[in-house]
Lab assay of single mutants.
Amino acid sequence: YKIYPYDSLIVTNSISVKLPKDVDRTRLERHLSPEEFQEVFGMSIEEFDRLALWKRNDLKKKALLF
């Protein structure tokens, strides 16, 4: 996945969300650098992957990456 800054990946309720063209809309968190991922989620990507799907989705919603 290509890395993008968190600010360019957050999704708000506005209709005209302009995400970069090559971003996987269903896995926005994968486009964060490991350092920024840790900062946003408070855990590593590996720890995040071990969580239940509902928990990952809940965290993504709170981080505006859903």
Rank of each mutant, 00 (worst) to 15 (best):
Tyr1Ile: 12
Tyr1Ser: 07
Tyr1Gly: 07
Tyr1Met: 10
Tyr1Val: 11
Tyr1Cys: 09
Lys2Asp: 07
Lys2Gln: 11
Lys2Glu: 09
Lys2Gly: 07
Lys2His: 09
Ile3Ala: 05
Tyr4Arg: 01
Pro5Gln: 05
Pro5Ser: 08
Tyr6Lys: 03
Tyr6Gly: 01
Tyr6Leu: 05
Ser8His: 10
Ser8Ala: 14
Ser8Gln: 15
Leu9Ser: 01
Leu9Ile: 06
Leu9Asp: 01
Leu9Gln: 00
Leu9Gly: 01
Leu9Phe: 02
Ile10Arg: 12
Ile10Pro: 00
Ile10Thr: 07
Val11Arg: 07
Val11Gly: 08
Val11Met: 10
Thr12Cys: 11
Thr12Asp: 11
Thr12Ala: 11
Thr12Tyr: 15
Thr12His: 13
Asn13Cys: 13
Asn13Gly: 14
Asn13Ile: 06
Ser14Asn: 14
Ser14Gln: 13
Ser14Phe: 06
Ser14Thr: 12
Ser14Lys: 10
Ile15His: 15
Ile15Leu: 14
Ile15Arg: 03
Ile15Trp: 06
Ser16Phe: 13
Ser16Lys: 08
Ser16Gln: 10
Ser16Asp: 14
Val17Trp: 03
Val17Ser: 15
Lys18Gln: 15
Lys18Met: 13
Leu19His: 08
Leu19Asn: 05
Leu19Trp: 09
Leu19Glu: 05
Leu19Cys: 06
Leu19Asp: 05
Leu19Ala: 06
Pro20Thr: 04
Lys21Thr: 13
Lys21Asp: 15
Lys21Cys: 15
Asp22Ala: 04
Asp22His: 05
Val23His: 03
Val23Gln: 02
Asp24Lys: 04
Asp24Tyr: 06
Asp24Gln: 05
Asp24Phe: 05
Arg25Gln: 13
Arg25Leu: 13
Arg25Glu: 13
Arg25Met: 13
Thr26Val: 07
Thr26Asp: 15
Thr26Lys: 11
Thr26Glu: 14
Thr26Ala: 14
Thr26Cys: 15
Arg27Glu: 06
Arg27Asp: 03
Arg27Phe: 08
Leu28Ala: 03
Leu28Gln: 01
Leu28His: 01
Glu29Asp: 03
Glu29Gly: 00
Glu29Gln: 02
Glu29Arg: 00
Glu29Pro: 01
Glu29Trp: 02
Glu29Ser: 01
Arg30Ser: 04
Arg30Pro: 01
Arg30Phe: 03
Arg30Thr: 04
Arg30Gly: 04
His31Leu: 03
His31Gly: 01
His31Arg: 01
Leu32His: 00
Leu32Gly: 00
Leu32Glu: 00
Leu32Ala: 00
Leu32Ser: 00
Ser33His: 08
Ser33Glu: 04
Ser33Thr: 06
Ser33Pro: 03
Pro34Trp: 10
Pro34Ser: 12
Pro34Asn: 09
Pro34Lys: 15
Pro34Phe: 10
Pro34Glu: 13
Glu35Tyr: 11
Glu35Arg: 11
Glu35Asn: 11
Glu35Asp: 12
Glu35Thr: 11
Glu35Phe: 11
Glu36Gln: 12
Phe37Tyr: 02
Phe37Glu: 00
Phe37Met: 07
Gln38Ile: 10
Gln38Met: 14
Gln38Ser: 12
Gln38Glu: 12
Gln38Gly: 13
Glu39Leu: 15
Glu39Asp: 11
Glu39Pro: 03
Glu39Lys: 14
Glu39Ala: 13
Val40Cys: 06
Val40Tyr: 06
Val40Ala: 05
Val40His: 09
Phe41Asp: 00
Phe41Met: 06
Phe41Thr: 00
Gly42Glu: 11
Gly42Lys: 14
Gly42Thr: 08
Met43Glu: 01
Met43Phe: 05
Met43His: 03
Ser44Arg: 13
Ser44Cys: 10
Ser44Lys: 14
Ser44Val: 13
Ser44Asn: 15
Ile45Cys: 07
Ile45Pro: 07
Ile45Asn: 08
Glu46Leu: 12
Glu46Arg: 10
Glu46Ser: 12
Glu46Trp: 10
Glu46Cys: 10
Glu46Thr: 12
Glu47Ile: 10
Glu47Met: 10
Phe48Glu: 00
Phe48Asp: 00
Asp49Glu: 11
Asp49Gln: 07
Asp49Trp: 06
Asp49Met: 08
Arg50Thr: 13
Arg50Gly: 12
Arg50Asp: 11
Arg50Phe: 08
Arg50Cys: 11
Ala52His: 11
Ala52Lys: 09
Ala52Gln: 11
Ala52Arg: 08
Ala52Asn: 10
Leu53Asp: 10
Leu53Lys: 09
Leu53Thr: 12
Trp54Cys: 11
Trp54Gln: 11
Trp54Phe: 09
Trp54Arg: 10
Trp54Glu: 14
Trp54Leu: 08
Lys55Trp: 08
Lys55Ile: 13
Arg56Leu: 02
Arg56Tyr: 02
Arg56Thr: 03
Arg56Cys: 03
Arg56Glu: 02
Asn57Trp: 07
Asn57His: 09
Asn57Cys: 09
Asn57Ile: 14
Asp58Tyr: 13
Asp58Pro: 02
Asp58Arg: 10
Asp58His: 11
Leu59Trp: 03
Leu59Asn: 02
Lys60Ile: 02
Lys60Val: 03
Lys60Met: 03
Lys61Leu: 08
Lys61Asn: 07
Lys61Tyr: 08
Lys62Cys: 09
Lys62Asn: 09
Lys62Ala: 12
Lys62Tyr: 07
Lys62Val: 09
Lys62Thr: 09
Lys62Trp: 05
Ala63Tyr: 08
Ala63Ile: 03
Ala63Gly: 04
Ala63His: 10
Ala63Cys: 06
Ala63Pro: 00
Leu64Asp: 09
Leu64Ile: 04
Leu64Met: 12
Leu64Ala: 09
Leu64Lys: 14
Leu65His: 01
Leu65Trp: 02
Leu65Gln: 01
Leu65Glu: 01
Leu65Lys: 01
Leu65Asp: 01
Leu65Phe: 02
Phe66Met: 10
Phe66Thr: 07
Phe66Ser: 08
Phe66Gly: 07
Phe66Arg: 04
Phe66Val: 08
